[in-house]
């Protein structure tokens, strides 16, 4: 640029240096770009693999289960030693099980979460409770099944029934509900609490009117996860009330019941003719998937509706 006053040599070296710098710079940039490309490709690959597995599983179930689906399949009792007929009692049983176990776990879980997030003082006791909840969330479901049987059936003398299974399933899903609800409560900005306190509002009213509504959509997430688990888990109901064959709709919470997950398990492992009932098995799996999916949809709908209500016209 300012070459005229300088000797040509000096200008040359300067030019060389700039060129060198630029070269080094482009090499560096190229390398960085390459790294970035590799990283992104790996991420894409991971997503593709995950999605592929999911699509294959769901596609397989839909393709093989679809032929089994008919009005009769959805509305009739199983007949001919379960090799024919419908799966109505299992559908109804699963829905009842999910609703009842949510009725057990959601109130208890949310109250526990409110206590942990809002009232419990930081310290040893709180840490122990939180760690216990974490451990419970990771406990295998079959342990919950055995515990449910030991506590509700053998100790408390409840019958093998929908109620007992729901209580057991409720215990299984409660830790997840507690954790997600607690996280949602902690995520509510401190400013809301301060603002409310500064208006002379008691802590409880603040929790009821501001904190819980703000945390609501986060809590729903935990409930969504729990819904799927409650519908799908088999081990907790295995010992506590689900039965192999009960071709009636449960008339009370004290009667035994059929559930899709257990039905599927039995049909695929212990039925009289496993090969013959393959189609029914896939049909059952498809119905189970559909139920879980639509329950999630309902929950997402609730969440969206609620968010809109509190953050309208953003």
């Amino acid at each position: 640029m300012s070459g005229q006053n300088q000797t040509p040599e000096k200008g040359k070296t300067e030019k060389n240096r700039t060129e060198k710098l630029m070269k080094r710079n482009t090499a560096y940039k190229k390398r960085q770009n390459l790294y970035q490309k590799i990283a992104f490709s790996l991420m894409r690959l991971a997503v593709v693999v995950t999605m592929a597995v999911l699509i294959i599983i769901i596609g397989d179930i839909i393709l093989k289960g679809y032929p089994a689906i008919s009005i009769g399949f959805l509305t009739q009792m199983p007949t001919n030693q379960m090799t024919e007929g419908g799966i109505l009692p299992a559908i109804v049983g699963t829905i009842q099980l999910v609703i009842l176990s949510l009725l057990v776990a959601v109130p208890l879980g949310i109250i526990t979460a409110v206590y942990l997030a809002e009232y419990a003082a930081d310290g040893k006791v709180k840490r122990i409770i939180e760690q216990a909840v974490n451990n419970l969330a990771g406990t295998p479901s079959v342990v919950f099944g055995l515990f449910g049987m030991a506590l509700f059936v053998m100790y408390l003398g409840l019958p093998l029934s929908l109620l007992t299974a729901s209580l057991t399933m409720g215990l299984l899903i409660m830790p997840v509900i507690i954790r997600t609800a607690q996280e949602a409560l902690i995520a509510v900005p401190k400013e809301y609490r301060e603002a409310s306190a500064a208006l002379g509002v008691t802590k409880w009213e603040t929790i009821r009117r501001v904190i819980l509504p703000s945390a609501f959509s986060g809590m729903i997430t935990g409930i969504i996860i729990s819904t799927g688990r409650a519908a799908g888990e088999t081990a907790p109901i295995l010992f506590t009330g689900a039965v192999f064959f009960y071709p009636r709709l449960p008339d009370s919470v004290f009667s035994p019941f059929m559930a899709l997950s257990y039905h599927l398990f039995v049909m695929a492992t212990e039925s009289i003719n496993i090969e013959l009932t393959r189609e029914i098995q896939y049909g059952t799996a498809l119905v189970l998937l559909a139920i879980v999916f639509s329950m999630n949809l309902i929950a997402v709908g609730i969440r969206r509706h609620y968010k809109k209500k509190s953050f309208s016209s953003h």
């Binding site: 400013e191 809301y192 301060e194 603002a195 409310s196 500064a198 208006l199 002379g200 703000s214 509190s310």
Partner: peptide
């Protein structure tokens, strides 16, 4: 709470509730 009814407070950062 009675005290805070009598002595109101406005904060550094505007902190309206997520309501109308």
């Amino acid at each position: 709470n009675d005290l805070r009814k009598r002595v109101g407070m406005v904060f550094q950062k505007a902190n309206p509730f997520p309501m109308s």
